[in-house]
């Protein structure tokens, strides 16, 4: 029926393109549009309002009683905290994930399969449940808090409801996303290359730096993106382990769509979050291109 290959390819691709447009493109456009509208009285969006950038202005400027605009840093602080927490989580995951992935790659076949299973098992339970588990582990009368306080030279420390708790929870939640791509790289790595490096006069450290590290870099980048991006938008972990005191972008977005019923402002926050993610991913892609060029 269709002999033209271009036509044929187009027709075969149509379902995929339709799905992408319908399920990703349309909602994104909708969100962008809503972020320009005003807040409705009952439904969350005033569909009749004139589009404006007021919601974006609100992120940084606040109208004073007398109508002058003054700087409002609270959203900026939350944004910065989100970036810092996501970055810290990424670094923690990398520090923990590297040795684990290296060790796994050296195991026997059955050992590796068992470890892969163990690492994926947490995904079988809900994120909420897993964060509640940390709530129990870190709470004031838990054994972790008690033993930490017993040796702490600074007097009693609060483990829960602060940035540290959120960082711990996030690292725990996203560590597998770091381990898996790293493991994939190390599993394929030809360890004889290190011998070749020693043979050519490189010490152990130099061989790791000049051979293993550059070959593992794509895995490190992939893992870092997979941890950093979802961390930036996380809201369950900061809500539970941050106890409402340590807010991240995800929390305030959720609030705008929930309790505050201010969908347009929530949408503008989402657009900002999306933009931040795009910037990070573009930077990574550029970095990778420069490396391979």
């Amino acid at each position: 029926m269709m002999h033209n290959p271009t036509l044929r390819r187009a027709s075969l691709l149509t379902p995929a393109i339709a799905v992408i447009l319908l399920l990703i493109g349309v909602p994104l456009c909708l969100m962008g549009w809503i972020s320009l509208l005003g807040k409705g009285t009952s439904s969350g969006v005033d569909w009749a309002s004139l589009p404006s950038v007021a919601n974006y202005v609100r992120l940084v400027w606040e109208e004073d009683f007398d109508g002058t605009m003054i700087l409002n840093s609270s959203y900026l602080v939350i944004f910065l905290r989100s970036v810092v927490l996501a970055a810290v989580t990424t670094i923690f995951s990398l520090l923990l994930g590297l040795p684990v992935a290296l060790w796994m790659a050296g195991l026997s076949r059955t050992g590796r399969d068992a470890m892969l299973l163990l690492i994926t098992i947490p995904f079988w339970t809900n994120l909420l449940v897993r964060n509640y588990a940390w709530l129990i582990i870190l709470r004031e009368d838990g054994w972790v808090a008690k033993s930490v306080n017993a040796i702490s030279p600074f007097g009693p420390v609060q483990l829960l409801y602060n940035d540290t708790a959120v960082a711990i929870g996030l690292t725990y939640s996203f560590l597998p996303f770091m381990i898996l791509p790293l493991y994939t790289v190390f599993e394929k790595f030809d360890w004889r290359l290190l011998e070749a490096a020693y043979d050519l006069g490189a010490t152990r450290k130099r061989a790791l730096r000049r051979v293993l590290l550059p070959i593992a870099t794509p895995g490190i980048m992939a893992g870092s993106l997979l941890v950093f991006i979802p961390c930036l938008g996380a809201f369950v972990t900061p809500a539970l382990l941050g106890g409402g005191k340590t807010l991240m972008l995800g929390n305030i977005i959720q609030m705008q769509f929930g309790a505050s019923r201010n969908w347009p402002f929530g949408a503008s926050l989402s657009v900002i979050l999306l933009a931040a993610m795009l910037i990070v991913m573009t930077a990574m892609a550029l970095l990778r291109n420069r490396r391979t060029a």
């Binding site: 030809d190 004889r192 290359l193 011998e195 070749a196 490096a197 020693y198 043979d199 050519l200 006069g201 490189a202 010490t203 051979v211």
Partner: peptide, 17 residues
């Protein structure tokens, strides 16, 4: 250690980086 020996190896698998 290997990096202090004045010998070099051509590996069976070549082991090029």
């Amino acid at each position: 250690p290997p990096f202090h020996r004045p010998v070099n190896t051509v590996f069976q698998s070549y082991a090029l980086f």
